[in-house]
Design a protein around this nucleic acid. Sequence first.
DNA 1: CTGGAACCGTACCGTACGGTACGCCACTGA
DNA 2: TCAGTGGCGTACCGTACGGTACGGTTCCAG
Lengths: 215, 215
Amino acid sequence: MPLTIKVNEETFTPRQQAVLTAALDLLVENGDGLTMTAVARRASCSKETLYKWFGDRDGLLTATVQWQAAKVRMPVVDRTHLTAKSLRLSIEQFARDLLTVITGEVSITLNRTAVTHAAQEKDSLGIIVLENGPMAIRRRLKPILEAGRDARLLRFASSEDAYRTFFGLVVRDVQIRLLLGDKALTQTNVEANIEADVKAATDQFFALYGAKANA
Amino acid sequence: MPLTIKVNEETFTPRQQAVLTAALDLLVENGDGLTMTAVARRASCSKETLYKWFGDRDGLLTATVQWQAAKVRMPVVDRTHLTAKSLRLSIEQFARDLLTVITGEVSITLNRTAVTHAAQEKDSLGIIVLENGPMAIRRRLKPILEAGRDARLLRFASSEDAYRTFFGLVVRDVQIRLLLGDKALTQTNVEANIEADVKAATDQFFALYGAKANA
DNA sequence: CTGGAACCGTACCGTACGGTACGCCACTGA
DNA sequence: TCAGTGGCGTACCGTACGGTACGGTTCCAG
């Protein structure tokens, strides 16, 4: 019976965080390389300590994913003085953040881990990843969108649909191809195009939801 | 040393296909349940036969994914008499096919398996899945898009970008949420909304790339 | 009838890994 | 100085699973 980890509180000691870092490194280096022995060796700690702190392998995995996912802190966009220009810059910033996150090596690893986990009737990691990735952006973007609508800069019926369309326009097939290991999408290759993709997605979003569109 | 499987030729005997069916069933039931012993028992064959036919576990996995992925045969859309109406119906059909495929249980299983595989420096399954899923649709959609452009019904610079935008508008965050096991997106829940989502995505696609848009 | 090929079922082997137990050291506080 | 505690390292156990070996059965060719 694994003991429940207090993932919500950041009660990880520096030593424990070192362990989690080692675990994440192993995950990134080799997806299935997260064996208890390997983590213990990498972190220079004993397996017994691992079990004492994290309960079992799943607890360590959960703590690692939770801890890393929560570290994805995207810069907060200034919301004061909502003008057409500032709104557009905000949207662009969200697009940039989203693309930067999902194309990052850590994010790819966490998503792969969570997908693998979900394939075994365990969806806790999936929820954590979703919650800290797309949903985090959504929570911050939605108020902006609604403010834009109130200011008559945007036009949409459902802010949920508007957000999901935004997600699609920005992410397109990039994430799934990265998760599947598509060699045609190298890390650098994607990063070089981020700015262009950000601008294109924002343009399209405003074309669909800008106040002047869909008259 | 695993022997190379002739995946390109469909030289699987009925008996072998029964084995592959058993393997896929096990994958769907329980992602990591694909053990050689389980497949042998399910298919009522000996492990020795499995190794003789497929080389090793990875060979069996590859053969299963390849065989199943290739079975995803989306109905071909009629391309004759390209009018504004028929073009729209074609696009809608592609959107419907794409959504139907990626929300299917088999597709989710294959994608999860391939993602897991890709997490271990093996990308062969990812390529197979990509090739038979999104890329298959892309190969068939692109000519339609270009025909639409030639007929002045659509307007875009790059058919590749147009396709990827189409993908994003249709798929949005549905696929990643399904892969991550998001309980809020049950199978039936998604299927009930497919028609509405198809229409919305098509509307948006024409708003962005229709000849009258973006004047 | 007989030899051989294919294949089923099962027993078996080796290894990797999750999880536990234990000896030892370093530190701390009285 | 001396218990007590926390944690490192290692040895160990049980099991699950990949892969192999082998006996037994069926079927076919000659």
